[in-house]
Simulated assay, not measured.
Amino acid sequence: MTKHKIEIKKIENIAARQVAFSKRRRSLFKKAGELSTLCDAEVALLVFSATGKLFQHSSSSVEQVVEMHKNMHSSIDKSSYHPPMELQMRNEVADKTHELRQLNGEELQELKFQELMKLEERLLKGLTRVLKAKDERMANDITVLAKKGVDLMQENKKLLQIADEKEQA
């Protein structure tokens, strides 16, 4: 009898789900034991059932493996440790949010005089760009409106001529 691939989705039947959980849990623990034996690795596996019951497997003891994990992470040189991408993105978002608040005139207490001068310079450059864009937009709008005005004057002239011709006839 060959094994066939099943679709991975939640099993709706509660009894069937419990049977599958038990079988797969045993298989998972067996694989963890094989990994530990074959590779001489310390393995700790914690599984919580849907009812909240804890099942654990460990090559030595779960507490020893967890303690080993804690010791490894506390001894890592922080300068050579690169946090996961998500943490980097969160930090970058926090930095940019802080920078935006400073640009809005908030959270300025910790800035030194030189930093305040640089912030002022950035704001002035930005304001200059905003004023330039506004002036260009306004000049463009004035040009468009002037063209519409000329078109309306010509239309008005035509209508006056037509009215004069009808009056004379």
Results as ranks from 00 to 15, higher is better:
160 L>H: 13
53 K>D: 03
111 L>P: 05
37 T>D: 07
89 M>N: 12
136 E>N: 13
117 M>Y: 11
119 L>R: 02
40 D>C: 11
8 I>G: 01
32 A>E: 02
51 T>M: 10
161 Q>H: 11
110 E>C: 05
158 K>G: 07
131 L>G: 05
81 Y>Q: 04
89 M>R: 14
25 R>N: 04
117 M>V: 15
30 K>N: 06
17 R>D: 00
138 M>N: 11
126 G>E: 14
88 Q>F: 04
82 H>S: 09
48 F>N: 12
128 T>S: 14
150 V>W: 12
100 L>T: 02
11 I>L: 06
113 F>G: 05
133 A>C: 03
62 V>L: 13
35 L>M: 06
155 E>A: 00
134 K>H: 10
128 T>M: 15
28 L>S: 08
26 R>W: 07
126 G>S: 09
129 R>P: 02
148 K>F: 01
70 K>M: 10
145 L>E: 01
27 S>Y: 11
65 V>I: 15
82 H>Y: 08
81 Y>R: 07
53 K>I: 07
156 N>R: 13
44 A>D: 00
41 A>G: 11
96 K>F: 10
22 S>K: 15
35 L>Q: 01
144 V>H: 14
159 L>Q: 08
147 K>D: 05
72 M>A: 13
88 Q>W: 05
36 S>G: 03
68 M>W: 09
84 P>A: 09
22 S>D: 11
33 G>N: 07
83 P>F: 07
120 E>W: 04
146 A>T: 12
46 L>W: 02
80 S>W: 10
68 M>C: 09
41 A>H: 10
85 M>R: 15
40 D>F: 04
152 L>T: 05
101 R>Y: 06
146 A>M: 15
79 S>R: 15
66 V>Y: 06
55 F>Q: 00
117 M>T: 12
117 M>P: 04
166 K>T: 05
11 I>H: 02
18 Q>P: 01
161 Q>W: 05
102 Q>G: 04
133 A>I: 08
58 S>Q: 05
156 N>T: 07
136 E>F: 07
148 K>N: 01
77 D>P: 05
82 H>L: 12
25 R>H: 03
45 L>R: 03
2 T>L: 15
140 N>A: 12
4 H>A: 13
155 E>T: 09
48 F>H: 14
9 K>C: 07
